[in-house]
Amino acid sequence: MESPALEKLESVYTAYRESGGSVVSLLQDIQTEFGYIPQDAVHWMSGRTGIPASRFYGVATFYAQFYLEPRGKNIVTACCGTACHVKGAERVLTRLREELALEPGQETTRDGQFTLEKVACVGACSIAPVVIVNHKVFGKMGPDKVPKILGEYGEQPDE
């Protein structure tokens, strides 16, 4: 691993030692530093703490919050809660996948611009169906509105 990454891991490890952390808190901190859970980081941390890598993966794959792959620049969250479901969330989701040209099982576009994820409920049931891009909420969505909304994002110059 490169030295900036090692420094980050050292600081995560120090915090764990000092405040009595756990596997979950280690993974949360790693993800905060890297944006996802890199394989190298898990193996490094496993060597340092003596906790088997399998336990890290056991926990990381258990919770929806942990990502084992780098994520896209823009996070598109399609709410698939009950209220959104009965108001047509599935058709919105299908259109999102089409527009982003995602294969089944693929979550992040090849250019790294977008990651599409489903969420059970964002608590905005009153304006269902709901799509969130980064932190902006789009209510009363329909398949037709998808291209316009995605057009506002993506392929922007690096910030």
Partner: peptide, 9 residues
Amino acid sequence: GDPGAFMDR
């Protein structure tokens, strides 16, 4: 975590 409930939040 219930899809369709957000009162606690």
